[in-house]
Design a protein around this nucleic acid. Structure first.
Length: 981
DNA sequence: ATCAATCCTG
DNA sequence: CAGGATTGAT
């Protein structure tokens, strides 16, 4: 807006607004005009708060007169060789800020209050307020669904990585990923969702009883069998209990539903089975099949058990009834949580529940049955009718007639049985062969789904319906004998169609399996590679240095860099006060940690492949699932991260020699605190050896993705950098502020400390060495492997692929770079921007232009740059809030007790994010100060419950926006950029 | 209607 | 980090 104003006006405008908040906020108070209130905040404030440089690019620090706070602007232009004006200017903030802040906050609150009352529109959930914003949060927020899936999973059994996805995906697949061996959980789940696979295991009577019994008994109020009850009760499995609870919880609802039907059925039929709950619906193929299966069970005990249960529960209803209930449950469960759709009652954006649709389809038939009452659908009704007919048949005719018939029917197509969807036979076989069991399991589920669909269709518009009708008629006439014929017809029909389905499914599965096996192999290799790459990644961050340090860097080093054997290198653990443990706890994971999870996740585990027993039940859900998982599971899309600041060989080399200023080990960050941070993988052992095989770089699909503005395909991009995902939740112990209050006196930040440029950068300034290095390092860089690793050669091909482009695009000769006015932002630019963030959080476009002289700015790249900073800020503030909350939870009472030092975790975290490669050897003191202030602001706000308000952060933003400082002149230097390579 | 910042998500 | 949705200001 300011741009539209003539300089003079702009100035006035800005100035006025800047001060307005104070004026207005006091005057109008509470009862005042909303208009005024609003104006206090919004855009103007931000705009005005920004340093003048932000303003109109065309208007050099013009605001001088108007702004008080903007003093900085007046400060000596660039490159204050020595502590100049800025220093003195900063101090004021301490004293001045508080007061100013107070005002601001007041006004803000005031405004906020007004706003709220005025329009309670947006009730956003502050996701960023500590809770991870990723899918995990979504998961955690999932209500019932999750509860079921998670709880239902047997604690001891495999950590089901995909419990979340399971919940989304749809019940049919639920236990698909779970190891079959656990008959208990398995059976229960399958019952829950299918009721098809009743007899889970032929033998284990207890299991059988438990699974069958649990549901039957739990869901039906008519259980008298002591055995059954006992089995239910004594069921060691916690899940039994949970399930029971869940089911019972639903029971009432279900019963009520059923009661309605029951009432009806009572009139129609004479069934007065136990109590009132007699499902109108009757046994269908599934149940019959199941029954038969159980009967056929080899183990006498099982048989007897089954029979017993059957006999105890009404012959007909035992299966159908629970089934129906289950269906109801499912439907209820399904319908209740519509995650994501609403948060705090607010509808957000497009809903994202892809799988749910899928799931929906698969269930439709089932659910419809259950929902028939509530949702009179022609389809459903017919279905119901048919089923009723079926159920009635026996009653009218000979008791066992239908049953026998059905059993026969089942048997006759002997061949069909195995693949047959519901036939429990599959389960029996599963015992012998895990793999096959999985397959069968899988097939079963798929079939079930398919079948459901098909049944729907058939019933809907096929002759099957007609036949059923016929059947009904026949039934009515008590012409049971004809039933057999019909049964056969039906049987053939169904089996025929099923056969096809089954075939397709099996084929599908087989294919998948093949893929999986391949993937598994690849994964195995990749695991190694993964480790290696992780090392690499780690090396990007200061913390991993230790490891790398140890490896004798045979890599080319930058001039001026400490010799490999230099003092620095000598100690694996750079002489920081940090202890070994810290050093040794890079975020690298133990080699073995991943496989289990991702396998499970990615696909149905091969038989018994991964006994993922010991990991925590929710292991899979752990946020740390960052790197490894993607490897296997993600051949898919990777959003081109145009810019990538990952370290390149060169930087690695650099890193190897000198450890970060912030000391190798980030104490709190990865250290003891983070559980998963596993012992440093034996750096040397893995690397060298596995390299060759593992190295085939992840298919450099990079070129493919260059959608956006920033061009440069960066070989190293093939990975998203999940930042320290786990911190918030996991990190605990040491105060984020990391003690050391001593060092950071609240005193004004020292004068413009020019952060020391990393030696490497300085060293690189000599062209010859630089270029030399450049060439030398090229390979490594492309390979993205540890510099220390000699084997990176294997990657050559891919390298060559990139090299050309990169060269032309990114690496203009040192000399030319200056001249090259590209409009594309490269990864180096990103790094530079990040470094700039240490000085300015809210750079104006003019500043950006000034400091990216080699960029030909246009709308796009400008926006991109702006976006970058926006992202930086986002991260920054998230961190701030996180640590603020943490310190609050640690019992800190006074905001002033919070102090930030360069050793503080926050700083480390930030450094890791913005200065991974430590191009900036020393974080500017002022930044430290800013962080401290920010932290305190957040702390105060949170402490005062301000975080309950809508845009409580704005006030803080406002404050922080004022703390920008001048970006060092040398950022403008073309060589600087080059050195960031 | 347009712009910009933020929020949210992938 | 980027894209898209939201929100609020102008």
């Amino acid at each position: 807006m300011n741009h539209h104003l003539p300089p003079g006006q702009e100035r006035l405008f800005a100035a006025r607004h800047h001060q307005d908040p104070f004026v207005w906020s006091h005057a109008p108070r509470r009862h005042t005009v909303l208009k005024g209130v609003q104006r206090c905040f919004p855009r103007p404030f931000m705009d005005n708060l920004r340093p003048p440089q932000f303003r109109a690019p065309d208007e050099p620090s013009s605001l001088v007169g108007g702004l008080r706070i903007g003093t900085r602007d007046v400060a000596p232009p660039y490159w204050p060789p020595l502590p100049l004006a800025p220093p003195t200017l900063h101090p004021p903030p301490i004293g001045a800020l508080p007061t100013a802040m107070a005002h601001d906050e007041e006004s803000d609150c005031f405004m906020l209050g007004e706003k709220l009352s005025k329009k309670p529109k947006r009730i956003r959930t502050r996701v960023d307020a500590g809770e991870p914003r990723n899918s995990y949060s979504a998961f955690s927020s999932l209500p019932n669904l999750c509860g079921v899936s998670v709880n239902a999973v047997r604690p001891g059994s495999a950590p089901n990585l995909f419990s979340a996805s399971q919940s989304f995906c749809g019940l049919p697949f639920v236990n698909y990923f779970n190891p079959p061996p656990t008959a208990g959980s398995r059976g229960m789940l399958s019952e829950l969702f299918g009721a098809h696979t009743k007899p889970v295991a032929p033998c284990p009577p207890e299991d059988t009883v438990a699974t069958m019994g649990v549901l039957d008994k739990v869901t039906s109020s008519n259980v008298h069998s002591a055995d059954a009850v006992n089995s239910v009760i004594r069921g060691p499995e916690a899940d039994n209990v949970l399930l029971r609870e869940i089911l019972q919880g639903r029971k009432r609802e279900i019963l009520t539903m059923e009661e309605i039907e029951a009432a009806r059925s009572l009139h129609n039929n004479n069934n007065s089975y136990k109590g009132a709950a007699e499902p109108v619906e009757t046994s269908n193929e599934d149940t019959n099949a199941a029954r038969e299966e159980s009967v056929t069970a080899e183990d006498p005990r099982c048989e007897s058990e089954v029979e017993e249960t059957m006999s105890q529960n009404s012959p007909r209803t035992d299966s159908p009834e629970p089934r129906k209930r289950l269906e109801n449950i499912v439907s209820v469960i399904r319908s209740s949580p519509t995650p994501n759709t609403t948060v705090n009652g607010c509808k957000k954006r497009k809903l994202y529940l892809p799988q749910q649709h899928e799931a929906r389809n698969s269930y439709d038939s089932q659910t419809e049955e259950g929902e028939a009452a509530a949702e009179p659908d022609n389809k459903t009704r017919r279905l119901e009718e048919d089923e009723q007919v079926e159920s009635r048949a026996p009653e009218s005719g000979e008791e066992g007639g239908l049953q026998i018939d059905l059993s026969v029917r089942r048997r006759s197509p002997e061949t069909q049985r195995a693949p047959s969807p519901k036939p429990p036979t599959s389960t029996s076989s599963s015992d012998s062969n895990d793999a096959s069991s999985y397959l069968l399991d899988y097939a079963q589920r798929l079939l079930r789904t398919q079948e459901a669909r098909q049944r729907e269709n058939d019933l809907k518009n096929s002759d099957l319906t007609e036949k059923l009708q016929l059947l009904r008629n026949l039934n009515l006439n008590s012409q049971v004998t004809d039933l057999e014929g019909l049964a056969d017809v039906l049987k053939t029909e169904i089996t025929a169609s099923l056969a096809v389905i089954i075939d397709t499914i099996v084929n599908k599965y087989v294919q998948q399996r093949k893929l999986l096996t391949k993937q598994a192999e690849v994964a195995a290799e990749q695991l190694n590679r993964d480790i290696a790459s992780q090392l690499m990644e780690g090396s990007r961050s200061p913390r991993s240095h230790k490891m790398l340090d140890r490896t004798p860097p045979n890599m080319p080093r930058l001039n001026g860099m400490p010799a490999p054997n230099g003092p620095l290198n000598l100690s694996p653990y750079p002489g920081s006060e940090n202890s070994l443990n810290n050093l040794n706890l890079p975020h690298l994971r133990p080699p073995m940690y991943k496989p289990p999870h991702f396998f499970q996740g990615s696909l149905p585990p091969m038989g018994g492949m991964i006994p993922s027993g010991q990991t925590s039940p929710y292991g899979g859900m752990e946020p740390e699932q960052d790197e490894a998982l993607p490897l296997v599971v993600t051949p898919k899309k990777k959003r081109h991260k145009v810019t990538d600041s990952r370290l390149t060989p060169r930087t690695v080399g650099r890193l190897l020699e000198d450890f970060p200023r912030y000391g190798g080990p980030l104490p709190g960050m990865m250290g003891p605190a983070s559980p998963r941070s596993s012992p440093p993988p034996p750096p040397m052992s893995h690397h060298p050896h596995h390299r060759p095989s593992s190295f085939p770089q992840p298919p450099p699909l990079l070129p493919v993705s260059l959608p956006t503005s920033v061009a440069i395909p960066n070989p190293s991009l093939h990975e998203s950098n999940l930042l320290y995902p786990g911190y918030y939740s996991t990190h605990r112990p040491s105060s984020p502020l990391d003690g050391r209050r001593d060092e950071s006196p609240a005193g004004p930040p020292p004068p413009h400390h020019h952060p020391l440029l990393h030696p490497a950068l300085l060293a690189a300034s000599s062209p010859d060495t630089f270029s030399r290095f450049l060439h030398g390092a090229d390979h490594d860089r492309a390979s993205d492997c540890s510099p220390a690793d000699p084997h990176y050669d294997g990657v050559q091909p891919t390298i060559s692929f990139y090299s050309p482009q990169r060269r032309s695009l990114n690496l203009p000769g040192p000399e030319e770079s200056m001249l090259t006015h590209s409009s594309t932002l490269t990864p180096m630019h990103l790094r530079k921007a990040k470094l700039m963030f240490f000085f300015v959080r809210y750079p104006s476009s003019s500043v950006l232009k000034t400091y990216f002289p080699d960029i030909k700015f246009n709308k796009n790249n400008t926006a991109q740059l702006v976006k970058w900073f926006s992202n930086f800020r986002e991260f920054y503030y998230i961190q701030m809030e996180k640590y603020a909350r943490q310190s609050l939870s640690e019992g800190i009472k006074n905001a002033d007790d919070i102090s930030v030092t360069f050793e503080s975790e926050i700083i480390r975290a930030l450094n890791l994010h913005y200065n991974r490669n430590n191009h900036l050897e020393q974080i500017p003191e002022h930044f430290r100060y800013v962080v401290e202030q920010t932290l305190r602001e957040f702390f105060k706000a949170i402490q005062e419950q301000k975080d309950q308000e809508q845009s409580w952060k704005k006030a803080i933003y406002k404050i922080i926006a004022r703390l920008d400082e001048q970006v060092p002149e040398y950022f403008k230097s073309p060589t600087f950029l080059e050195q960031l390579e």
